[in-house]
């Protein structure tokens, strides 16, 4: 990390990678300072640029939504803190991402955990064995039923978020408010699953 890169904001840092979407967030509302959508192929380059500028990987969160499978990478900086969420969307039929474990070594376990829970394949992970679930276990516990899947916009583009969109590629519609932003069906399906417990609350 050099003094010049330490203060560079992600919108400048990630600009060469042409993010489909990049926004400055209000940390008081979401806990994030920036959020971005990247394509899977530039993920390792983004990881390398971020490491060089002193960012560390906090976690990798899988997410099963109507548009496909997504992964959210949370990065933060120790010198000038502010959280960056990098989101990548994958085709449900072939959920593959390049591993960044050769850049941020801590990613190896986060990737293996995400593979356990969502079945996402991280190509190039140095040890792609199950991390938390038993070997040979069938299925991925955090995948959702068709009826329970919400659109991305219903989770990430809600009114009152107070974010400022800095970049938005032509044709990027993932965060456009869905017609059924609050789908009645998924809520009902989930409510049925927890009815017994919820009534005791």
């Amino acid at each position: 990390m050099t003094p010049e890169t330490a203060s560079v904001t992600p919108d400048v840092l990630l600009a060469p990678l042409d993010p489909a979407y990049l926004a400055e967030e209000n940390p008081a509302r979401t806990g994030l300072r920036w959020s971005a959508f990247l394509s899977a192929d530039v993920l390792p380059r983004a990881a390398a640029l971020l490491l060089e500028a002193g960012w560390h990987l906090e976690d990798i969160c899988g997410l099963d939504v109507r548009e496909g499978l997504a992964a959210v990478y949370h990065f933060d900086r120790m010198t000038s803190p502010g959280r960056l969420a990098i989101r990548v969307l994958m085709d449900r039929a072939a959920p593959v991402l390049p591993s960044i474990a050769d850049i941020h070594q801590g990613a190896e376990w986060h990737e293996r955990e995400t593979a356990d829970f969502y079945g996402i394949v991280f190509t190039g992970n140095p040890n792609p064995a199950p991390l938390l679930l038993p070997e040979g276990m069938q299925g991925h516990p955090l995948l959702k039923d068709d009826a329970a899947r919400a659109p991305l916009a219903a989770l990430l583009a809600v009114p009152g978020r107070e974010d400022t969109v800095l970049r938005k590629a032509e044709g990027f519609t993932l965060l456009d408010p869905a017609e059924d932003a609050k789908p009645a069906k998924p809520a009902k399906a989930k409510a049925a699953a927890t009815e017994e417990g919820a009534d005791n609350a």
């Binding site: 806990g31 906090e58 976690d59 969160c61 997410l63 959210v72 949370h74 955090l142 919400a150 219903a154 989770l155 990430l156 609050k182 789908p183 998924p186 809520a187 989930k190 409510a191 927890t194 919820a198």
Partner: peptide, 21 residues
């Protein structure tokens, strides 16, 4: 160290996704 909780909600009865860092 740093404990992080990420919640994504679709407005349903239970959270849509919770990540424990």
């Amino acid at each position: 160290g740093k404990i992080g909780v990420w919640i994504a909600s679709d407005g349903g009865k239970t959270p849509y996704r919770v990540k424990l860092r």
